[in-house]
Nucleic acid binder design. Structure first.
Lengths: 88, 88, 88, 88
DNA sequence: GCTTGGGGCGTTCGAC
DNA sequence: GTCGAACGCCCCAAGC
């Protein structure tokens, strides 16, 4: 056997390559995500160093997020109303 | 009062500006994070469309992540030992 | 052995009794929950029978819930601000 | 307009009242459900405080539920067979 | 059957 | 360092 994996032949060559590509793309994205989260941590740490209360900052961000979510839902509800009465 | 916020004067102008900047940076980062996570969803959706089992794919990614973490730990331990005996 | 379970002796008599009590309380609560959820289903079914759009009803309920959550968070933020400046 | 809602006239008075009633009933039931779930959380927290493993407790409850479902299915099957042969 | 919402679980982060 | 709370992930069920 040319490969050290016992079950390698379950997928043909093309599928194996495709699988590798998918895994790599996901892992690259996870790196990106980790980097972003790290940046956020740095921003908060910096803010804390300037005397801001991180807990309050987080709450503000959360609150604004809720606002946005609510707005979006309201718009969705309007769309729903419109579709319920047969569109515009 | 030149602002519609009742408690605006608790922070001076510079601090207010700084606060806004911080909030905006965090929110920008949250957007980035959401975008990345969305990309991941798309990759998985695409993979699913090609017949791959998304659950298994996630498991593979997780396992590889653990592997990497383990490798890093081992390397750190090796470095520790090496430094303990005065290097290579 | 006075019991048909092989691992019964892992817990002493008091603990066994306590365990039974806990399980029974949880199961009673699950029944309550199921009953409540069933009632909700009935309300929606009834509403549907009167010509109301259940999907819209659900969205309204969700929206009002978000409203309440947001209000509570805002109050929590105010409390946080107050505590941050040393109370009232 | 006697109401602050712009789209109020889409439903007549009776329907509006009915709608309010429905929403209120649902919201009341959601409160009930939340209360029940909160009670469950308390039971588990209490159990945890006594040294029980909450995850295991949940598993037990789930298993017993499956058991009960299985018993009910079997009984239903027995009834079916019985009715098929004209009762006992 | 596919997608969307809800519940459960593990992880992470901050508080004490 | 332990604790609890918040967040993200995963699974399941229900609706379209």
């Amino acid at each position: 056997m040319a490969d050290d994996s016992a079950s390698v032949d379950v997928l043909n060559g093309a599928a194996q390559t495709r699988l590798r590509t998918i895994i790599e793309r996901v892992e690259r994205l996870e790196e990106d995500k980790a980097a972003v989260m790290n940046d956020m941590k740095e921003v908060f740490a910096e803010a804390k160093g300037e005397g801001f209360d991180v807990k309050i900052l987080r709450k503000i961000v959360r609150l604004r997020k809720q606002d946005r979510a609510k707005r979006l839902e309201e718009e969705a509800l309007i769309d729903l109303y419109l579709s319920a009465i047969g569109g515009l």
